[in-house]
């Protein structure tokens, strides 16, 4: 029994070491942004009219941080809406799309899939079940749809992928309607070497 175990360990180490040798390029590391607060516009419950307009919060994958609108930004957040620095939303060259996959399984970005923002259709579609989230009309909670990866071509022509993990402050497993919302936590990978491989 003990011998079998040792043999197994030896085998595993052998194969593991072989595999390691075959790795040519290192995967760029996964980074995490927590509690990016981007409140939606405040609307009158009855009429639906905007009472208080809130700003977009702009984000740069290269800087892995929020940036002022005047700097090179890739995407921007306001509530559940995500705009891309392109078309009607910005003067930049960014593009984006949503892919049904796990985060790890998205190994490359495909230019043909990527789109820009237009008057009627955002590159990252908004609305419940259209893009990255589902709105539950019963308890009013916003939950990211499982297996939705946002792939972005950044303003500087590099590629990034991201998965939104939570819409609520501190990403609780059980958000309640009173948890602070519009507070995003997401994972992303930024491929800085200019290739479309993650």
């Amino acid at each position: 029994m003990k011998h079998t175990f040792l043999l197994l360990v030896a085998f595993t180490m052998f194969f593991a070491s072989c595999k390691k040798d075959e790795v040519i390029t290192a995967h760029p590391e996964t980074q995490k942004i927590t509690n990016l607060h981007a409140p939606a516009d405040v609307r009158d419950q009855q009429t639906g009219e905007i009472i208080q307009e809130n700003p977009y919060i702009y984000f740069s994958f290269a800087k892995a941080d929020t940036v002022p609108q005047t700097e090179s930004w890739d995407i921007a957040f306001k509530g559940t809406k995500i705009i891309t620095n392109s078309g009607v939303s910005g003067s930049g060259n960014a593009k984006a799309t949503i892919i049904a996959s796990t985060f790890d399984d998205v190994l490359e970005a495909n230019d043909a899939d990527l789109a820009i923002d237009t008057d009627t259709q955002l590159a990252i579609p908004y609305g419940s079940d259209n893009g990255w989230y589902h709105y539950n009309p019963t308890n009013h909670l916003i939950t990211p749809i499982a297996g939705r990866v946002i792939v972005v071509k950044t303003n500087d022509g590099k590629y990034a992928k991201m998965e939104i993990l939570s819409y609520y402050k501190d990403a609780p497993a059980d958000p309640t309607p009173t948890t602070q919302d519009a507070t995003l936590t997401f994972n992303f990978v930024y491929q800085g070497d200019g290739t479309n491989k993650f």
């Binding site: 049904a100 996959s101 796990t102 985060f103 399984d105 939950t143 990211p144 499982a146 297996g147 939705r148 990866v149 998965e163 939104i164 993990l165 939570s166 990403a171 497993a173 059980d174 936590t185 994972n187």
Partner: peptide
């Protein structure tokens, strides 16, 4: 392989 779920603690999707 088209069905996903989210780990409730981490928020990460898996197949």
């Amino acid at each position: 392989g088209k069905v996903f779920a989210k780990d409730l603690a981490s928020g990460v999707s898996y197949k």
